[in-house]
Amino acid sequence: MKPSSEPIFWMLFGGGGMLSALIGPVLILVTGILVPFGLLLPQDTMSYDRMLAFAQHPLAKLAVLVVISLFMFHGCHRTLHSLHDLGVHTGTGAKVAFYGVATLATLLTAGLLLVIGF
């Protein structure tokens, strides 16, 4: 039996799982509920100017990249295994597709962060 390549994806899955367990709920609460409804937080919390300034900071860029990338790897890894759980055959093709989507999202995020500039 050859060694599984799973450790690579499991580490990314674990990183995303931990990060989303810590800050997933609060992120969704802020961007998806509080800000759209104008609840609790200042009105300009997610204004274009503030978000642009945020996305131009190098540390914030790193944070955005890590959040989107790890969430995607976590989600794709789990969904791939869920397909197997539901009896769908998931071979190499499915693996390439799912982790490919997560990789693509990571590259897109990195690209956009560069486009936004410093």
């Binding site: 995303g16 955005v64 969430f71 995607m72 976590h74 989600g75 794709c76 969904t79």
Partner: peptide, 14 residues
Amino acid sequence: EGSALLLTAYALVL
């Protein structure tokens, strides 16, 4: 395990 679908979709929203 299904929570991952929502998390993935949220990452795409971001």
